[in-house]
Write a protein that binds this DNA or RNA. Structure first.
Length: 910
RNA sequence: GGACGGGUAGCUCAGUUGGUUAGAGCAACUGGUUUACACCCAGUAGGUCGGGGGUUCGAGUCCCUUCCCGUCCACCA
């Protein structure tokens, strides 16, 4: 029930109270509601051990806005929360902790390590979910899922088995991206290229059958010389045509290697001769395959040189070995020259060390349903917002390569493949692939590796519901909530996650099929819309990072601005899909806006009881009691416009406009004009116009709170109750938000005809008031509230409008009296559409200053007239432009001319 | 090398299908305490819309070209 509103909004009092109440009352619980449209969002699961940062604030505020809006529209909603085990990131953290104790994971073994990791994830896990609650996130927390929950893991294994059985998953010995720090294979997406300064060594290899004759070769990696098994030149390179088929001496270990011809070599690069190291370079590996070259792996998994590198190098770090190899070339007299060189080197995204191409046995996924994944987007079954991300997505799919999904890590879902003990692992006859493992486990050994994290989270949209279980609950919920409605995420994981989820859904959500029809695609896609937001950066545009210390703790910001203030603030500065420059001052607006809204309600409450607000009908009934005055008509018109605008912004996924539209309406229209104007009516509580103004305020506030609720849930809930819009124990979200059309109909049905044309008149009154204020300010009388104003109306209609709004004008312009006159001379004035408004100041007028002011205005109008008449005098414009544009230009010119004449007259009268 | 995004007021950004004299918030400046709010009110100033060319009656908006900034993809050893 309604309660008194205190002075000053204190989010600390309000926010925790309502969050607790919502949770206790199951406000966020998403259940299948037959007959209602479903709306669901899957949270992009944050890392289990992560803590909330500004990116999460943005991402989750957006999701909460979507889901709360859907709730207000009366949909059957579900926001599904959870966390990701983040295999490599979490394992790194646990290993770091171990290292502090002077241990490595191999010292303690897999079992003990996993114990530690679980302990770690339980200690830190869930912190972020608690923080999300502080932000007001309305997730159905009962459903919180962790990607290493037993049920989720079963889904992951089931997916693996299905993909394996369908031939998409295979095991192969390939050159993969190897991270020597984490000692695991990585996917191409986990490798980032960075420019590195290094050296380019030119060396010479002597021909075996022509001692003294040498072939010059350039390299950036002399430490792999020991793994060279050929030298390659381009087949069309005339310089070397006679050498192909001959042999050169590899300097160390000294051995004969062939000179071969291969098109992969660039003639014009370096010397045009390439040392071929099949074990340590992708291109070389391909060449090696084509020419059947031996593969010599000279490196250990940890990035040190191996036995094959020879005793001098074995055990040495790869970068040490590089220097040493160069030195050795020099000693042997084989070094021609050395130059500084910058090239791009692949780094492990996580560990930030250069990766090594490394030959190893791994599991790969040949992506399924690539064509369908493209079609889904091309045909608009899945829509990116903003649309431009479509291209990025399609481009990736067009160049897609098989995905290395095995990781030599322990923390994660272990690959559900078992090998028969003491049998040949490379022979698939000795494999067992299943969800539950072999029935005679003692005869088998499970694969050591775990899956790439993304090879589990790509199932998130349906595995969370229990897929592939076929129990009633799972099927019913999936039928209702899948495909989910909107995916909200950053563009940085468009390949890692978004595209892979699409393919996983298309392949796995349904029967095994070679290809899919459009109807089948629609049923299988994981989401229909993708809202891509930008990355949060600091005020200088730098990425936020711990080391830079430019990453504010959202909890501090919530403490300072309130969750609602932070939410509004972050939404307000988030442009459509590009990077967001964050600075704390930019959040001020959110806190200030909360306070403004709060005080608007407080003001309303101070002017009368709010005991007849329980339903929209009750409020409409009260408005009916007396005819609308101009301002009330105007604000209702603006309310309908605003409601419509917000509808369109949601429909078009233009969320960056929401906060601006609502801020302008609540602050600019309602508080600055309607509330101020209504003060004239509120003086006399017995006046029916007072009752009407209060009822109109109640309607505007009610609708505004609903429109704002998705952005600022706590304060709107508090005010919803304080303003008596619902019974105790009920919640804002249970009142269905009327659409602009519904609201308009409801008003019409109640006999309240909102008149758009009359609303325009009010714009004229506002203009007159602003002009009057400006003239007063010019004479340093802005705060004087007892001046006399003269108005010379433009015509009879204007005169009537001014008369009707006399009280309001007096109140808002700060005048004691307003006199309508036919002509005024020698007073400072300002021309507006309703007429000219003058300040009664004949005695004290500063003629020079006034002349200057009017002169400036005159100049501006002259320019406009010149442009306008020029346009209208041109037959081209009059003949070619559409009639309404010409008409508009004529009207505009006439008005401007009238204004100009009036100002000229004013000037003359001085 | 390929693709995309951006360049509009001191700063951060809006600006629908081309159509009045290009907007907002912050900052600045001036003046204030009015039936709520100094987390406030009123007012002022500030822009040749990156440069050049074109299409058009008309361009911040469309086309071409060019210069900056940023991102992604590719990777010549």
């Amino acid at each position: 029930m309604a309660q008194e509103i205190d002075q000053g909004y204190d989010p600390k009092e309000v926010e925790p109270k309502w969050y607790a109440a919502w949770e206790e009352n199951g406000c966020f619980e998403g259940e299948v509601e037959e007959g209602k449209e479903a709306y669901s969002i899957m949270i992009p699961p944050p890392n289990v051990t992560g803590i909330l940062h500004m990116g999460h604030v943005l991402d989750n505020t957006l999701q909460d806005i979507f889901i709360r809006r859907a709730r207000l529209e009366g949909k059957s909603t579900l926001w599904f929360p959870g966390t990701d085990h983040a295999s490599i990131a979490t394992q790194n953290k646990v290993e770091q902790a171990l290292r502090k104790e002077g241990k490595s994971r191999r010292d303690i073994g897999r079992e003990k390590f996993l114990e530690r990791a679980w302990q770690w994830s339980e200690e830190h896990g869930g912190i972020i979910l608690k923080q999300l609650r502080k932000l007001g996130a309305s997730c159905d927390w009962r459903r919180t899922t962790f990607t290493m929950d037993e049920s989720y893991e079963r889904s992951v294994r089931a997916a693996f088995v299905k993909l394996f059985e369908r031939g998409y998953i295979y095991r192969g010995k390939r050159l993969v991206n190897w991270c020597p720090a984490s000692q695991t294979a990585l996917s191409n997406e986990e490798v980032v290229m960075k420019p590195q300064k290094g050296k380019f060594w030119k060396m010479r290899y002597e021909l075996v059958d022509q001692p003294g004759r040498c072939l010059e070769i350039s390299t950036t990696r002399p430490e792999t010389i020991m793994g060279d098994t050929a030298v390659a030149v381009h087949p069309d390179d005339e310089r070397y045509a006679d050498l192909v088929g001959k042999k050169v001496w590899r300097p160390f270990p000294r051995a004969e290697i062939p000179i071969i011809a291969d098109r992969a070599v660039e003639k014009d690069f370096g010397t045009g001769a390439l040392k071929v190291t099949p074990a340590h370079d992708q291109v070389d590996f391909e060449i090696g395959k084509r020419h059947d070259l031996p593969v010599i792996d000279v490196m250990n998994p940890d990035g040190t040189l191996g036995e094959a590198a020879g005793p001098e190098f074995a055990g040495m770090d790869r970068f040490e070995a590089r220097k040493k190899a160069a030195q050795k070339l020099e000693e042997l007299g084989l070094l021609v020259d050395t130059e500084d060189y910058e090239n791009n080197v692949g780094f492990s995204e996580r560990a930030d060390v250069p990766i090594e191409p490394r030959l190893s046995e791994q599991w790969f996924l040949k992506y399924p349903k690539v064509a369908e994944a493209k079609r889904a987007v091309e045909k608009g079954m899945i829509n990116f917002h903003p649309k431009r991300w479509e291209k990025v997505y399609l481009n990736w799919l067009n160049n897609i390569q098989d995905w290395c999904i095995s990781r030599q890590l322990w923390w994660g879902q272990r690959i559900p493949v078992w090998y028969r003990k003491d049998a040949d692992r490379t022979d698939s006859a000795n494999w067992h692939v299943s969800v539950d493992g072999p029935s005679d486990p003692e005869s088998w050994i499970q694969d050591d590796d775990v899956l790439d994290t993304w090879a589990s989270s790509y199932l998130w949209p349906f595995a969370t519901f229990g897929w592939p279980n076929t129990d009633e609950k799972t099927l019913k919920e999936l039928a209702h909530f899948y495909p989910t409605s909107t995916l909200v995420t950053g563009f940085d994981i468009i390949f890692f996650w978004v595209a892979r989820m699409v393919m996983a859904g298309l392949e796995l959500y349904g029967e095994d099929k070679e290809s899919l029809t459009d109807e089948e695609i629609k049923a299988r896609i994981p989401f229909k819309d993708i809202y891509m937001h930008g990355l949060i950066r600091d005020a200088q545009g730098r990425k936020m990072s711990k080391t830079l210390g430019n990453s504010p703790d959202p909890l501090d910001l919530i403490e300072k601005f309130g969750a609602d203030g932070l939410r509004f603030g972050i939404i307000n500065i988030a442009p459509s899909g590009s990077d967001i420059l964050f600075a704390e001052e930019r959040i001020d607006i959110g806190r200030n806006f909360c306070n403004k809204l709060w005080n608007a309600c407080r003001f309303r409450q101070m002017n009368g009881p709010v005991d007849a607000n329980l339903s929209l009908d009750a409020i409409v009934e009260r408005i009916k009691a007396s005819p609308l005055d101009g301002y009330s008509n105007w604000i209702l018109q603006r309310l309908l416009d605003t409601t419509r605008e917000i509808e369109s912004q949601f429909a078009k996924f233009e969320l960056h406009q929401l906060s601006h539209t609502l801020y302008n309406f609540v602050w600019g229209d309602f508080c600055d004009w309607y509330v101020e104007a209504s003060k004239a009516l509120l003086k006399d509580k017995e006046d029916p116009r007072c009752t009407m103004a209060l009822a109109v305020s109640d309607l505007v506030i009610r609708q505004s709170l609903q429109l704002l609720h998705p952005i600022m849930p706590h304060i709107t809930e508090e005010l919803w109750h304080a303003m008596g819009y619902c019974e105790e124990g009920d919640f804002l979200q249970n009142a269905v938000l009327p659409s602009a059309a519904e609201l308009s109909d409801k008003l019409a049905a109640g006999g309240i005809a909102v008149d758009a044309a009359a609303a325009v008149q009010v714009e004229g009154v506002k203009e007159l008031i602003s002009k009057a204020r400006a003239v007063k300010a010019e004479y340093n009388l802005a705060s004087k509230r007892d001046v006399t104003l003269f108005v010379t109306p433009a015509d009879a209609a204007s005169s009537a409008v001014v008369r009707e709004n006399l009280d309001t004008i007096k109140k808002l312009a700060g005048a004691e009296a307003i006199e309508l006159r036919d002509a005024v001379d020698g007073a400072p004035g300002s021309v507006c559409s309703l007429g000219t408004v003058y300040l009664d100041l004949s005695s004290a007028i500063d003629v020079e200053a006034e002349k200057e002011r009017l002169g400036k205005e005159l100049e501006k109008l002259d320019k406009a007239i010149q442009a306008g008449s020029g346009k209208l005098n041109s037959p081209n414009f009059v003949n070619k432009a559409p009639a309404h544009v010409v008409e508009g230009a004529r009207k505009q010119l006439a008005e401007t001319q009238a204004k100009r004449d009036e100002i000229a007259r004013l000037l003359a009268s001085l």
